[in-house]
């Protein structure tokens, strides 16, 4: 375990020292170029979609359960 942490620390140190700078997105270097701009919009759009989908499905399930909990059961009303 100790050896693993030492190796991980050396690796992180190596990664921090060696490159002058890092860019996560290969298509976003120059946004004046239309194709890079296209990739950029596409990435932003697709990045937003999982949150939208989970938000909508989760929101629908949550609303159904909340509505069901609000409604008094037949036995309570009797």
């Amino acid at each position: 375990m100790k050896r693993f942490f030492i190796l991980a620390a050396i690796l992180i140190l190596f990664m921090l020292i060696v490159p002058t700078y890092l860019e996560a997105c290969p298509g976003c270097k120059n946004l004046d170029d239309p194709i890079n701009k296209g990739f950029n919009w596409s990435i932003l759009f697709m990045m937003a979609m999982p949150f939208t989908v989970f938000g909508l499905v989760g929101g629908t399930v949550y609303l159904h359960y909340r509505r069901a909990n609000r409604k008094p059961t037949d036995q309570e009303t009797m």
Binding site: K37, M49, P50
Partner: peptide, 18 residues
Amino acid sequence: TMLFSGLIGAFLVFRVGN
């Protein structure tokens, strides 16, 4: 929705890229 997102994403690359 994810399927169509992928297709729309591809469309955006071509549309904005041209």
